[in-house]
Amino acid sequence: MDKNQNGIELMREGKWDEAAKAFAEAIEEQPKDPVAYINFGNVLTAVGDTERAMNFYDKAINLDENAPAAYYSKGNVYYDQQNFAQAKNMFELALKKGLETGDNFFMLGMSLANMENSKLALPYLQRSTELLEDDAEAHFQYGLCLARENFIDEAIIALEKAVMFDPEHADALYNLGVAYGFKEDGDKALELFNRALEVQPDHLLAGHGKKLIEGQDNH
């Protein structure tokens, strides 16, 4: 088995030290191959050593400026640091270099959404739901973004997909309830708030939504 493949298997098992060793050997054997540097950086990121990880990603980019995975990995580090503008730049570069994965579209959309630019985020999040068809989180974030831009009918479709793929997604249930509230379907909204509270009894927003609707019913 190739040392990179071996290292990736070890990472999946959470064996970080052994994975790092496999990637270090891969780097020794092929010092001009950016892949091992990216993989080694991913191990460092996973154990929280992001500063050193960034050096490995940069090394990979120096070896091959068209290594899209290096930009994607850098983007994830920036995103976790809540540096959304830098993250967006990295995911855009990864896309430009050919990384047309659902994850990259999703992270690019999320960076824009966190920069409060829902309108620009929409097409990327939409593309992520096409590529990650059964990913509840992708549909959820796309639905949220649609709701922010007042596309309530479309938001309902996306949020219903999120709940279909993950029936215990309390935030999706809650936001779907809010969307039905907008459509003045109080019964449906109440049912969804109750479902959100079943999944997560301390869901404050769902509790608040439920109280509001029940208060209206009592008048």
Rank of each mutant, 00 (worst) to 15 (best):
L120Y: 08
P123A: 10
E116H: 10
S128F: 06
M107H: 09
N117W: 01
T101R: 04
F106C: 00
G98Q: 05
F105P: 00
K97V: 00
A94T: 05
K119I: 13
A113I: 01
M115D: 08
A121E: 05
M110C: 10
L95V: 03
S128D: 02
Y124A: 01
G98M: 07
D103A: 10
A121H: 02
T101D: 09
L122R: 11
M107Y: 11
L99S: 05
T101E: 15
S118E: 13
G102W: 05
Y124S: 07
N114W: 05
N104H: 05
N104P: 04
L99I: 01
A94C: 10
Q126F: 14
K119T: 15
R127H: 10
T101H: 08
D103Y: 13
S118I: 01
S118A: 13
F105C: 00
A113S: 08
L120F: 07
S128I: 04
G109N: 07
N104R: 02
Y124T: 04
N114D: 07
A94E: 08
D103T: 06
L125C: 11
L120D: 15
K119N: 10
M110Y: 07
L108P: 00
L120V: 08
A94W: 09
E100D: 13
M107F: 15
K96A: 14
E116W: 13
L108F: 08
A113M: 08
Q126G: 12
M110H: 02
A94Q: 12
L108I: 00
R127L: 11
K96E: 15
M110G: 06
K96F: 14
M115P: 03
F106I: 02
R127F: 06
M107S: 09
L99Q: 13
Q126I: 02
L95W: 08
S111N: 06
L108M: 10
S111K: 04
L125G: 08
F105Q: 08
Y124L: 06
R127N: 09
G102P: 10
G98A: 07
K97T: 02
K119Q: 15
M115F: 03
L122I: 11
P123Q: 10
N117I: 01
T101Y: 09
L112W: 00
A94R: 11
N117V: 01
G102I: 01
N117G: 05
S118V: 02
M110E: 10
R127E: 14
S111C: 04
K97E: 12
L108W: 05
K119Y: 13
A113V: 00
N114A: 02
N114I: 04
T101A: 09
L122C: 04
R127C: 03
L95A: 09
E100Y: 14
K119A: 15
K97H: 06
Q126K: 14
N117E: 10
Y124G: 01
N114H: 09
S118Y: 15
Q126C: 04
N104F: 02
G98P: 06
R127T: 12
L122F: 13
S111G: 03
G102S: 11
K96N: 14
Y124H: 12
F105H: 14
F105I: 01
E116P: 00
P123S: 10
F105V: 00
N114Y: 03
S128Y: 05
